[in-house]
Amino acid sequence: MRNRRPNPRSWSTRIVTALLGLLVAFAVHGEAAAEDRFIVVASTTSTANSGLFDHILPLFENKTGIQVRVVAVGTGQALRVARNGDADVLLVHHRPSEEAFVAEGFGVARHDVMYNDFVIVGPAADPAAVRGLTDAAAALARIAGAAAPFASRGDDSGTHKAERALWAAAGVDPGAASGSWYRETGSGMGATLNTAAAMDAYALTDRGTWLSFGNRGQLVVLVEGDRRLANPYGVILVDRARHPHVKAEDGQAFIDWLTGREGQAAIASFTIGGQRLFFPSAKSVGGS
């Protein structure tokens, strides 16, 4: 127990020093390994969560060597990120906001990219009896009339904005019922669908997220096909005049590719379970 030992301080000190050194080397190495040529795209959870980017971005990156870093947040936050100059390209789905973004001088121009549509999902038991309706506003009015639970994004996202427009068309102010049958989750599409599945609530979702969503519970698609449920996506290059550090060339290259033949074909070829999620809509298809 009391046998004499060689001075033990040296080895433990050495171990600690070595570990610290290793750490620093690890961190520095990682930083240096990050690619130099990249653009930041502020986009929405609906495009990222559906797997679309995983499908199309490698094609672009392989062709141009430009890495595309996608920050996927709600449309409202994506607009703010781009407005602050923290992204080079904006890819969202709320046309009025996009046009305002360009009009205010933050963006160069808006280009159509693709569209999908929104659907109203709800419990298979359908307590508000909306199944099969093609008038989304009428469906929402019934849900309100039945005071059936409805899960809303409540996060100022593109989907949330579309939802609010539909409530207005239905002549219902769901905010008055917030907390009772109208539940605002204040979070992304996936989290809201998780909530709806857990509460057997109705919800408005984009079809892309819905098709790739794994935790549906009792939820099924009940309402679709209304023209007002169309969900167009636009892409905008952040204006270098406003934010001089914006990588305009690489960003424009991405937009050109996305709205060009290859990008549009890549979007069209993305399917889940045999179903297409997004439909190319660029006006320049075939033209560039």
Binding site: V40, N49, V70, V73, G188, N194, F213, G214
Partner: peptide, 24 residues
């Protein structure tokens, strides 16, 4: 970080992402 794939995606943000995809 922005939870950017291959750039700033870490364990916790990846978990949050999979939850939002419903892949519990």
């Amino acid at each position: 970080g922005g939870n950017i794939d291959h750039v700033t995606r870490v364990m916790t943000t990846a978990i949050a992402l999979e939850v939002s995809k419903g892949d519990l």
